[in-house]
Amino acid sequence: MKKQRSTFLFSVLCFGMAFLYIPMVMLVIYSFNYSKIVPVWGGFSTRWYAKLFESEEVWNALTLSLQIAVINATFATLLGTMAGLALVRFGRFRGRTIFSGMISAPLVMPEVITGLSLLMFFIALQQLVGWPEKRGMTTITIAHITFSLAYVAVIIQSRLSGMSQSLEEAAQDLGAKPFRVMFDITLPLLTPGMMAGWLLAFTLSLDDLVIASFVKGPGSDTLPILIYSRVRLGLRPDINALATIIIATVAVGVLIAGWIMIRQYKKQKADQQMAAS
């Protein structure tokens, strides 16, 4: 009975994994295809990788995407942290519940709507104050910040409510003024949450296609937009190569994060043993 169930679960697991990973594996394999026509295998080659790095368009899109992602992640983390702090720590103020609900709205809002409303906002703003003159990197970055800061705020909010307020009270009790408490106690304890928020904002920005395509201007193609517009005209082996590079980067990132977490876990274990002895 028990054995049967475990075989069943195991096959479901295998099926799910296959479903997840076979497409990606195929993409990686076909990026090494010599043939120009994607579904036809023409022997092993790395020529699409070489071609990729010759293309100025790809380089531009990549640097643009990275720039936007970094700026977005940094600002979103700053603003999101402040929002989270305000919502959890500064006591009850008028309309706190409404703010608290509103900040998480962008999480469930369809991206099309976020994108459209931001586009209209930028157009209206341009007519009123003449800024932003043309849409491009600035508008994409602002758009990204507005929705990623919601994610950061939610992360910070949950970390703060899990963090006992008595630490901050203890600091006050020892003579630290509220501002001091924030820098000495609250922010250091929030660092892991802020780092997680930064990474999340970074990835959100890096793979956003919908919002960016609404608020972008001419010649400001981010990487997802570039990939999408090329693939629309048919599958292309050089795009496979680009995707493979992205997959490899993400995989390395995940491995490093996992390694750090395991190391921390082991250290904690050792500490606890030391405390017990």
Partner: peptide, 20 residues
Amino acid sequence: VPPYERPVNMMFQSYALFPH
């Protein structure tokens, strides 16, 4: 008088030691 200016100190129930 705010907590940080009172001539008292408190030992918290869960100790509230700064973990970092």
